[in-house]
Design a protein around this nucleic acid. Structure first.
Ligand code: FES
Ligand code: FES
Lengths: 161, 161
DNA sequence: TCCTTAAGGATAAAGAATATCCTTAATTAT
DNA sequence: ATAATTAAGGATATTCTTTATCCTTAAGGA
């Protein structure tokens, strides 16, 4: 059980977009090149973020994506669920109903205890991811990085907005 | 991203094995029949639990599996990791190293902030699963179930040990 | 000696993740 | 107007994982 590689991609993309000035857009092509990932496939992931209301897109030259809201209003969980969906990581198939001793038509006390434990763990995971915003992300990704590299990267991005 | 169906299977199997008297074994065939799942494939999962030191197996007629230790010493996480492995659910591919502005040979402050957040969430998930033992499981799976059904199921199992 | 069982290897089928290509419509630059 | 650029989305291909079955071997019990 492993998250899609797209999750890493879009989180890094969000970090870039967080640094963009208001009403500036950055194209998929540039985000793909910056991160060394396939443009077409990254595009699918960004479309998901757009549909989830996290990004705003615009067409034509100088088009691309920007954040739909303040970085402080977008959490890791928002981004991850946009790509992975929000279905629980544990799917109960109700195998308890296969119990050969079960009376026909018997109705189990719902939901199964196992599923409850699994869903609680799932919620702990989500809660942890809800607690981190793109603002936190920007801070984390910049600290300890040489100012010269940050500056150069910023200019690389700005040259393409 | 979804857990293997085997996870649900083996957790239910562990609940059954928890109810077994000391030094009694239950065969894969019976566990598979009780839960209505394919015997051969369930067998692979039980082998994993055995290799993880959670179950003890014995051969021949009246052979099968029993718990290797007290139900209170086996957690959900133990069982799940035996089946799913213990690799983190987020795999960082270090795409930050693809940054075109990065000086050749530059060494990033390890690990990436994104990976740290993801691994922390992963740990929250694991912590939640570590807090529940097979003893808790037995209680959860029996409460609210009619005593007659519990009794009948117990007899079904005992008849095959 | 015969039957039952776990262990484990080989293989196949189904599904999900990864990736590419192409068309369409909107927007901008010329 | 025209041409270039871009996101959106459909179709399809490839690879990997999950799910499943089959078969052989060795151990244990009747
Ligand atoms: S029946 Fe699905 S987890 Fe118990
Ligand atoms: S480089 Fe992998 S998560 Fe940042």
């Amino acid at each position: 059980m492993i998250l899609k590689s797209q999750v890493e991609w879009v989180l890094h993309c969000c970090a870039i977009l967080s640094a963009l000035p208001e009403n500036k857009y950055l194209a998929t092509k540039d985000l793909a090149e910056f991160h060394g990932v396939p443009k077409e496939y990254l595009s699918k992931a960004l479309q998901s973020l757009s549909q989830a209301g996290l990004l705003v897109s615009t067409l034509g030259p100088s088009g691309g994506y920007r954040l739909a809201k303040s970085p402080s209003d977008i959490t890791f969980l928002d981004v991850i669920e946009a790509v992975e969906g929000n279905t629980p990581t544990f799917a109960c198939t109700e195998i308890r109903q296969k119990n050969p001793c079960r009376p026909k038509g018997y109705c189990e006390p719902a939901p199964c205890g196992i599923a409850r434990v699994m869903w609680e763990a799932d919620e702990a995971w989500r809660q942890s991811l809800r607690a981190v915003t793109l603002t936190d992300l920007s801070r984390m990704l910049t600290e300890g990085v040489p100012p010269a590299l940050l500056q150069k990267s910023f200019e690389w991005i700005m040259a393409r907005t």
